[in-house]
Design a protein around this nucleic acid. Structure first.
Lengths: 153, 153
DNA sequence: ATTGAAATGTAGGAAAC
DNA sequence: GTTTCCTACATTTCAAT
């Protein structure tokens, strides 16, 4: 199996922060040739170390002023119950993330809406209508102290 | 103030999913000229609708196998207490996100480490050593059902 | 604001060291 | 792994509508 070396990790570190860096810029920064960077980046993408490159938007400018983290507990944990929930909840565009969790509830959802009315609408007419939901406990973001997509490397 | 129109939103929708799309590809997809897309994208970046473009890594391949969501309650809510916590916790590379929240605790942290030992190390020697922490309750990701950086548009 | 066309720069591939 | 050369594309600017 392919194992990235220090150079690869340096490239990942940079591209995680700025995906628009050219091979030339990366080459200059880490002191290697452009052809080398070109090869490394190509392989890192082929091997799916880099899953994709995306634009990060300012949510307030596009009117997603309310972010909720919701803890969902299901009424039972049968395979089908879990599966249906995961499939259906993933279809909602408001749900940006869904994680199955350890502990006293089953899932954490990250939900983006424009305001409390839209959240309420989503909650009443979409989330709460899914089968086998026992409880939903929601917490709302007051302010973002740190908001990073980059992993520590 | 600058208000993006439908064309701008189509561009944002596309770049949120794939930040590597060329102006030519976008132009073809939404039926406008390359120069128009170029202008729009430039403005969307200048006006900070697009905050930045980043590479999204496969966390398991780079050995970040454990993601924790930790709920932090501080012992008091004096301005200085909140401020110090936010400043200090943001310095930890393991903390990818920190949100101040409504409700029964003060902050949610998203913490990325390689395994439970590293998490424990982080918790004992970094997080728990910050001043004025009352309680920390942590939940761990079992599986990712949906993991998106794109807002619904 | 949108377009087509022209100049510049980068990507991507191949060869030789 | 680096350097050079090459072609193809992409970006960027600009004059015109």
């Amino acid at each position: 199996m392919y194992q990235p070396d220090d150079t690869d990790y340096e490239i990942l570190r940079l591209l995680q922060r700025n995906g628009e860096l050219t091979n030339k810029e990366i080459a200059f920064t880490i002191g290697k040739s452009i052809a080398t960077i070109h090869e490394r980046v190509k392989r890192l993408k082929e091997e799916k170390y880099i899953k994709r490159t995306v634009a990060i938007l300012d949510r307030k400018k596009i009117n997603k002023n309310l972010i909720a983290f919701s803890h969902v507990l299901l009424s039972d944990h049968a395979f089908e119950t879990l599966n249906t929930f995961e499939t259906e909840v993933s279809k909602f565009p408001e749900v940006m993330e869904c994680f199955q969790m350890t502990g006293t509830f089953d899932f954490i959802l990250r939900i983006a809406t424009s305001d409390m009315d839209s959240y309420h609408e989503f909650y009443r007419h979409k989330l709460a209508k899914l089968p086998n939901i026992a409880t939903v406990q929601s917490f709302f973001v007051l302010s973002e102290t740190k908001s990073d997509t980059a992993y520590p490397l």
